[in-house]
């Protein structure tokens, strides 16, 4: 779900919402995830491929 859809829904909060839509939007997760995705480039390590390749562990239990 997009940010736009979520904002639209928030404005209509007082209105009864169709059941089907409530099921899709129950938690507001999408908006929060969208928000995180907006900044994710600055959170993720640069050079993804190389960073992941460098994560080498020794065996454990």
């Amino acid at each position: 779900m997009t940010q736009e859809n979520f904002s639209a829904r928030r404005e209509n909060q007082a209105q009864p919402v169709e059941t089907e839509q409530v099921q899709v939007n129950t938690t507001g997760t999408s908006a929060g995830v969208d928000d995180l995705l907006d900044e994710i480039d600055s959170v993720l390590e640069s050079n993804a491929e190389e960073f992941v390749r460098g994560f080498i562990q020794k065996g454990g239990q």
């Binding site: 992941v52 994560f55 080498i56 562990q57 020794k58 065996g59 454990g60 239990q61």
Partner: peptide, 9 residues
Amino acid sequence: TDNKSVSYG
């Protein structure tokens, strides 16, 4: 896991 054969618990 490191996704390179190793797991730890």
